[in-house]
Design a protein around this nucleic acid. Structure first.
Length: 906
DNA sequence: ACTAACTCGTAC
DNA sequence: GACGTACGAGTTAGTT
C-alpha cells in the first residue's frame, strides 16, 4: 500500500503573505494588537488541510540567527526591509497555536526553511513517501523530482507543480533551476546574477546548454554581447549559484515520523484563538478537526458572539421576493431621506450595465436589490423597473449618493430617471476639504465614521466584475455602501453647516451635478472621417521627419525617449544644455527652441513632437471614443477633480483640445453640431484679470477694464510710460506675460527665460509692475496674510481651499504655498462665477422655452448646440445671463459667437 | 506583465 | 528651487 504523503509547509511564506494581505486594513484586537498574520495564516492552513487532509505535515521555519549564506555573501537579503514589529510579534503566537494543535514546527539555527525542506524532502522520498513542498518561492522548484512536487499558493488556489509545470512556467527543468537563478539573480534575496541576462536570456541559454559549466565551456559559440556579459559576470554567477542552491543534507534530528500530526489540545487552541479575538477560526478548527465543543458555557458564549457579529451584517436584506420588493417600494415612497448605490459590471458610466441597487433609509437599515446574480433568481427586470419608476415618481426624498452622477447615468440608461434633490457625499467631502485629494468612500468612511468598509477588491475577483459575486456577499458589500453613504450624509451635512459651506453645496454644486449629468449624457458629435484623413496626413509627415531626424543624427534612436535624445543632443552633437530635470538635462520645448538657432536637429524634434502629440493624444484617440449607441463623444466631468473649484474633464479631456496652432485647430473643427443645429460659444473675456481687478480694487487695473481697453496694451502703456496707441508689439507681449505671471506668482527667473531677457531686466519689470499696480501688490499680501492666519484661501463666493504649507519654515514650500493661496482666490472665483452662470442659463433657457443644449465647459467658455432658428435669441440670452451673474466693480464681458464647428468660433 | 515615477505637452 | 489648475501619452525603472 502506498504510504501517506508528507507535506512540508514554508511557514514564513504564508505568514508574510497573510500579514501583507491586510496591510491596508489590518485586523486588530480591541486593544489594538495586530492579528492579521495569525488570522490569515490559519485561514490558509485550514483551507490547505481541507483540500489535502494531510497526515504528515511539518511546519518549517527560518533560522532566527544568520545563515551560512550570509557568511558566504554579506549582502545576501541585505535589501530586504526589516520585518515590521507588529508582524514579528505574531510569529511566536502562531507557533504556540500550531504546537497546541499537534503540529511539529521545525527550525534550525544557521539554515533557512528551504534547506530543511530540501533535506526532509529527500528523506521522505527515500522512505517511500510522496512529498509536497508548500511554498510560493520559485527557488523551491529545484527540489522537484518524480517523488517531490511543490504546491504554490496562487491567489486563493493551490497549484500543484511537477517537473512539466516547472518547465512550462520558467522554461527550464527543475535540475536547471539553480543555474537559472544564478544567471537571472533574485532582487528580493539580493542575489546578483549576471548583469544583462534576464529570464528570457537565461531560459534560452539553458535550453541550448545543460548547465552553467556547459555554458561557460562554450562561450566561443555565443554572440559577442552575450559572451561579454557572461565572462564579466562569471564570478558573480558562481557565487549566485552557491547562494541559490538549497541544501539537502542538513544535519537535523527530525525523522518523517516526527512530522505526523499529533493529538492536539482543543481547549487550549480555542482559548488562544479567543484571546486573539479570532472567533471565526474556532469554528473552522472545530469543523476540520471534528472537535466536540468544550464546556457548554464556553460554547454558548462563542455561539452568541458569532451570531452577534452576524446580526450586524445580517440586518442587510437581499430583496428577492415580490413581497420584499413591494415593501421596499413603499419605503421609497414614504421616506424623506434615501441613500442609494448601484452596482454595475463596469466602471465606465456610458457602457456599464446595472447589476443591482442598494438602498439605505436610516443607519443600519439597508437593502440590496439584485438585478443580475450568479447564484440566485432575481425578480423579473421589467417588473422591477416598472415598480421603481412608480416608486420614484411619488418619492420626494432627498436622494443621497456617493459619486451619484455615476449612478444617475447607469439608472438613466436602464430607463430610470431621477430628478433629485440630491446630496452627493463625495462632493460634500470635496467642498469641505478639496485639498485632501481623496474622496473615495472607503477613505471617507474611515475619516468621518472610523468605519472600515469591505473593499471592492475583497469582493470581486481580479478580472471579474460584480455580476459574478454571489448574492450573500454582494448584499453585504452593496448594502454596506448604501448604509455608509447614509451615515456619511449625516456627518457631512452637519460639517457643511458648521463650516458655512451650505450655500456653495446646495446652491452651486448640487445644481451643477445635475447639469453635468445632462451635458455628459448628451455628448457631442464628432466628424470622425475628417480626423481619420488627418491621421493619415500626420502619419506621412511623421515618417518623413523621422527619416530626416535619423539622417541628421547619423543613426536611428527612439525620438520619444528623452533619455536617448539627451545623449544625441548633448553628447553626440555637443550642444549645451540649458535646463535640468530631476534625472538629467531637459529636452523640453523651451530648451529645443533655444537650440534651434544653432542646430537643425532640435527644430526637427520640435516639429516631430508637436505632430506626434496631435496624432496620438487627439486625432487617433477621439474617434475611438465615439459611443456606438449614441454615435457621440461623452466626456466625464470631474466635479471633485480640482483643489480650486474648477471642473475637470476626462475620457476624453475636452478641456485641452488644441486651438493655438493651425494644425491643432483642425481637431477642434472636427467637433460639429447635430443636423439642423449650430454651435454657440460664449467665453468670458479675461475673466481672471477682471477678478483680480475686482478683488484688489487696484485703480489702474480697474480703470482699463472700465474704459474697455485692451488690458495688456494698457499694462504696457503704464509699464513703459508710453501712450496706449504707441505701445509696440514687443511691449504688449512683455506686458501680457507679466499680467499672467502675476496671477501664478511668476519669478524673475522664469519671466527672464520666457522673454529671453536678462534676469535683472525681468526683475526690474516685475518691480515696476508692482509699483504701478500697488493695489495688486497689497491684494497679494492680504491673501497670503489671511491664509497664514486661517490656514485657507477663499473665493468670491466663500469656497475655501486649505493651504497646508503656508506657515512652513521651508522657504521653497512656503513660497509654493503662497502662490497656491493667491492663485486659488483668483482661479476659484472664476470657477464660482461660471458655475453660477451655467445654473442661471439653464434656468433662463427653460423659462424662455429655448431648446439650446449646453454641451461643454472649458473653464471660461461654454459651448451650446442650438436649433439654427433659435440661434440669435439664444446668443443674446446667454450673453446677458453670463455678464450679469455677479455684480463686480468692473464690467464682466462675454464674447458670443456661433458656428458650424467648434474651431470656427473664437 | 503590471505599476509608479518621470518628462513632456495640451488647455485655461 | 524658480508659474497656478488639470489630463494623458510614452519611457523607464522597479516590483510580481
Amino acid at each position: 500500500m502506498k504510504k501517506e504523503p508528507v507535506f512540508l509547509i514554508d511557514a514564513y511564506g504564508l505568514i508574510y503573505r497573510a500579514y501583507f494581505a491586510f496591510i491596508r486594513n489590518p485586523l486588530r484586537t480591541r486593544d489594538g494588537r495586530n492579528t492579521s498574520a495569525i488570522f490569515g495564516f490559519f485561514k490558509m492552513l485550514f483551507r490547505f488541510i481541507r483540500e489535502y487532509s494531510p497526515v504528515y505535515c511539518g511546519i518549517i521555519l527560518d533560522s532566527k540567527t544568520p545563515t551560512f549564506r550570509e557568511q558566504i555573501f554579506a549582502q545576501y537579503k541585505a535589501t530586504r526591509q526589516k520585518t515590521p514589529e507588529d508582524l514579528h510579534a505574531q510569529i511566536p503566537l502562531i507557533e504556540d497555536i500550531l504546537a497546541e494543535m499537534g503540529f511539529s514546527c521545525v527550525r534550525l539555527d544557521g539554515y533557512e526553511a528551504d534547506d530543511i525542506m530540501g533535506t526532509l524532502s529527500v528523506r521522505a522520498e527515500e522512505a517511500g513517501h510522496d512529498c509536497y513542498v508548500v511554498s510560493s518561492d520559485k527557488d523551491l522548484a529545484q527540489l522537484v523530482t518524480r517523488g517531490v512536487r511543490i504546491i504554490r499558493m496562487e491567489k486563493d488556489n493551490f497549484r500543484l507543480m511537477d517537473s512539466d509545470a516547472v518547465k512550462e512556467k520558467w522554461g527550464v527543468s527543475p535540475e536547471q533551476i539553480i543555474d537559472y537563478l544564478a544567471l537571472v539573480g533574485d532582487v528580493s534575496d539580493n542575489i546578483p546574477g549576471v548583469e544583462g541576462i534576464g529570464e528570457k536570456g537565461a531560459a534560452r541559454l539553458l535550453s541550448l546548454y545543460r548547465d552553467m559549466d556547459d555554458i561557460y565551456a562554450h562561450l566561443d559559440e555565443m554572440s559577442p554581447s552575450i559572451e561579454k556579459k557572461l565572462s564579466q559576470g562569471k564570478e558573480r554567477a558562481y557565487l549566485s549559484r552557491e547562494l541559490a542552491t538549497i541544501k539537502t543534507d542538513v544535519d537535523i534530528d527530525v525523522g518523517i515520523e516526527d512530522l505526523k500530526i499529533g493529538k492536539g489540545r482543543p481547549d487550549r487552541v480555542e482559548a488562544l484563538f479567543e484571546s486573539h479575538e479570532l472567533k471565526s477560526l474556532i469554528l473552522d478548527y472545530r469543523e476540520l478537526f471534528g472537535v466536540s465543543s468544550g464546556t457548554d458555557k464556553a460554547d454558548k458564549e462563542t455561539a452568541s458572539l458569532i451570531s452577534n457579529e452576524e446580526d450586524v451584517r445580517g440586518s442587510y436584506v437581499s430583496v428577492i421576493s415580490g413581497v420584499e420588493f413591494d415593501t421596499l417600494c413603499e419605503k421609497i415612497k414614504s421616506v424623506s431621506l434615501l441613500a442609494l448605490d448601484t452596482e454595475t459590471d463596469s466602471a465606465d458610466p456610458f457602457s456599464a450595465n446595472i447589476v443591482g441597487i442598494s438602498f439605505a433609509f436610516s443607519p443600519g437599515d439597508a437593502y440590496y436589490l439584485p438585478i443580475v446574480s450568479p447564484d440566485t433568481d432575481c425578480l423579473d427586470n421589467s417588473f422591477v423597473l416598472a415598480g421603481l419608476r412608480k416608486a420614484f415618481s411619488s418619492c420626494d426624498a432627498l436622494i443621497i449618493g456617493q459619486n451619484i452622477k455615476f449612478d444617475l447615468h447607469v439608472l438613466r440608461r436602464w430607463g430610470l430617471d431621477l430628478s433629485g434633490p440630491f446630496f452627493d457625499t463625495m462632493v460634500a467631502a470635496w467642498v469641505l476639504d478639496a485639498e485632501s485629494g481623496n474622496f473615495g468612500m472607503d477613505f471617507l468612511a474611515e475619516r468621518y465614521l472610523g468605519w472600515k468598509t469591505l473593499h471592492y477588491t475583497d469582493v470581486v475577483e481580479k478580472g471579474s466584475d460584480f455580476s459574478s459575486v454571489p448574492l450573500d456577499i454582494a448584499t453585504s458589500y452593496a448594502a454596506e455602501d448604501a448604509d455608509v453613504t447614509f451615515r456619511l450624509y449625516e456627518v457631512l451635512e452637519k460639517e457643511l453647516l458648521k463650516e458655512g459651506l451650505v450655500d456653495i453645496f446646495y446652491d452651486i454644486e448640487m445644481p451643477i451635478l445635475k447639469l453635468l449629468t445632462d451635458m455628459e449624457s448628451r455628448g457631442i458629435r464628432l466628424d470622425a472621417d475628417s480626423l481619420r484623413k488627418f491621421s493619415v496626413e500626420l502619419d506621412e509627415k511623421l515618417k518623413d521627419i523621422e527619416k530626416t531626424i535619423y539622417a541628421c543624427a547619423g543613426h536611428e534612436f527612439n525620438i520619444n525617449s528623452t533619455k536617448q535624445l539627451q545623449i544625441v543632443l548633448f553628447e553626440e552633437r555637443g550642444l549645451t544644455p540649458t535646463k535640468k530635470t530631476k534625472t538629467g538635462y531637459s529636452t523640453d520645448i523651451s530648451v529645443l527652441e533655444e537650440l534651434a538657432g544653432i542646430d537643425e536637429l532640435p527644430r526637427l524634434i520640435l516639429e516631430y513632437r508637436s505632430l506626434f502629440k496631435l496624432k496620438n493624444t487627439y486625432v487617433d484617440v477621439l474617434p475611438s471614443l465615439i459611443n456606438p449607441v449614441t454615435g457621440r463623444i461623452h466626456t466625464w466631468y470631474g466635479q471633485t477633480g480640482t483643489a480650486t473649484g474648477r471642473i475637470s474633464s476626462k475620457d476624453p479631456n475636452l478641456q485641452n483640445i488644441p486651438i493655438k496652432t493651425e494644425e491643432g485647430r483642425r481637431i477642434r473643427e472636427a467637433f460639429v453640431p447635430d443636423d439642423g443645429f449650430v454651435f454657440i460659444s460664449a467665453d468670458y473675456s479675461q475673466i481672471e484679470l477682471v477678478i483680480l481687478a475686482h478683488l484688489s480694487q487696484d485703480q489702474g487695473l480697474c480703470r482699463s477694464f472700465i474704459d474697455g481697453e485692451d488690458v495688456h496694451r494698457a499694462t504696457a502703456s503704464l509699464l513703459f510710460s508710453v501712450p496706449v496707441e504707441e505701445v509696440s508689439v514687443e511691449q504688449r507681449r512683455i506686458a501680457k506675460s507679466i499680467n499672467f505671471g502675476v496671477m501664478y506668482g511668476m519669478s524673475a527667473f522664469r519671466l527672464a527665460r520666457e522673454l529671453g531677457i536678462p534676469r535683472k531686466d525681468a526683475a526690474d519689470f516685475i518691480s515696476a509692475y508692482f509699483e504701478k499696480y500697488s493695489g495688486i501688490k497689497a491684494f497679494i499680501e492680504k491673501v497670503i496674510r489671511e491664509a497664514e492666519e486661517q490656514g485657507y484661501s477663499q473665493t468670491i463666493m466663500g469656497r475655501r481651499r486649505r493651504i497646508p504649507y503656508i506657515n512652513s519654515k521651508n522657504k521653497t514650500q512656503k513660497m509654493a504655498a503662497e502662490r497656491m493661496a493667491v492663485n486659488t482666490a483668483i482661479q476659484g472665483s472664476g470657477a464660482d462665477i461660471i458655475k453660477k452662470a451655467m445654473i442661471e442659463i439653464e434656468k433662463l433657457l427653460k423659462e424662455k422655452g429655448l431648446s439650446a443644449r449646453m454641451l461643454l465647459q472649458v473653464h471660461d467658455e461654454l459651448v451650446f448646440e442650438v436649433p439654427e432658428e433659435e440661434c440669435d435669441v439664444t446668443m443674446r440670452a446667454i450673453k446677458s445671463c453670463m455678464e450679469s451673474v455677479v455684480k463686480l466693480s468692473v464690467p464682466l464681458r462675454v464674447n458670443v459667437e456661433s458656428g458650424k464647428n467648434w474651431g470656427q468660433m473664437h
